[in-house]
């Protein structure tokens, strides 16, 4: 089930792989800002297509595309369903009634639950925001070695103890997955069938029986590992792992990205103030028009 080639970063000779992790994170921040700040369906779709295009550039494998498609489609469906139920803008066209307002208790409490056509459309558009961020997040995940990311965080003054904890977590993640599977097998061999019902009491008992051995093992492992790393001098030296300075073109790129972020955020704030009738500056009329028409 767990395929390393899908979930873990693999080296490749593509511009995305070669890109410095700091540039990638800056780009991700810019994409996040635009994904949250854009209003229209067309610019959002354009951003989404651009983020998908980056996977083409990174030559993501077919399996990765499949994983990405599943995540995106399921996320899209979830947002569409939730918005079909809760959409409260006008106009809205009811296409089905799930709970009538006259239904005792639940109907009275909720005022009726309906499916609205416009809600489905709205959900599809808004799902592009989370879809874009997920696409870019997975791109970074699949094209960047975790060590590079950690090195970057350390360069940005993450305490080395936290970095050590992350490395420990990454190291023991497969082990804990395996242990969880072993615990489930052991419980089943003892006649315990956790997935038989969704009864809360049964669920809590299952959680208890599964977590206790895993955590007990973790505690013992922590003691052993602590002795091991302390005997090797962990915590004595505080020298920071610094990344090399970015080459000049990448420095310019970084500055450019941050400038875009800053300008985008400023424009968004200015437009939001005008749009909501809070503050209006007549000399910025062109900016308002640009934002309304293009973004």
């Amino acid at each position: 089930m767990y395929n390393r080639q899908v979930w873990e970063a693999t080296p490749a000779d593509t511009p995305i792989h070669k890109m410095d992790v700091r540039i990638k994170l800056a780009l991700l921040a810019a994409v996040m800002l635009f994904a949250v700040g854009l209003e229209g369906a067309r610019p959002l779709f354009f951003l989404f297509v651009c983020s998908l295009g980056m996977h083409f550039v990174a030559r993501s494998s077919v399996q990765r595309w499949q994983v990405l498609a599943v995540f995106l489609l399921v996320g899209l469906w979830g947002t569409m369903v939730s918005q079909a139920l809760f959409y409260n803008q006008e106009p809205r066209t009811m296409i089905a009634c799930l709970v009538s307002p006259t239904t005792p208790w639940i109907g009275e409490w909720t005022g009726g639950i309906f499916i609205y056509r416009e809600g489905l459309e709205h959900g599809a558009v808004q799902a592009l925001r989370s879809g874009t961020m997920l696409t870019c997040g997975l791109l970074i995940c699949w094209t960047t070695d975790p060590r590079q990311l950690l090195q970057c965080f350390l360069h940005w003054r993450m305490p080395f103890e936290v970095a050590f904890m992350v490395i420990t977590s990454l190291r023991f993640l497969p082990v804990i997955f395996e242990e969880t599977a072993v615990v489930f097998t052991a419980q089943r061999l003892r006649g315990f069938e956790p997935a038989r019902s969704l009864s809360p009491v049964r669920w809590i008992r299952t959680a208890f029986y599964v977590l206790f051995p895993i955590l007990a093992r973790s505690l013992r492992r922590a003691a052993t590992l602590a002795l091991s790393v302390e005997s090797r001098g962990f915590g004595r030296g505080n020298s920071r792992a610094n990344l090399p300075m970015l080459p000049l073109p990448q420095q310019f790129a970084c500055v450019g990205i941050f400038a875009v972020i800053l300008v985008g955020a400023t424009l968004k704030v200015i437009y939001s103030l005008q749009h909501n009738g809070v503050a209006y500056f007549p000399q910025l009329r062109g900016v308002y028009d640009f934002m309304a028409v293009w973004l």
């Binding site: 103890e161 904890m165 977590s169 023991f172 804990i176 599964v210 977590l211 505690l219 602590a226 790393v229």
Partner: peptide, 23 residues
């Protein structure tokens, strides 16, 4: 907080975090 934390506790927290992530 980190200075006052023993290595064993740091690892315990990391492993609990890993468990939380896994389950």
């Amino acid at each position: 907080v980190l200075a006052g934390m023993k290595t064993r506790r740091l690892i315990t927290i990391a492993l609990f975090g890993t468990c939380a992530f896994a389950v």
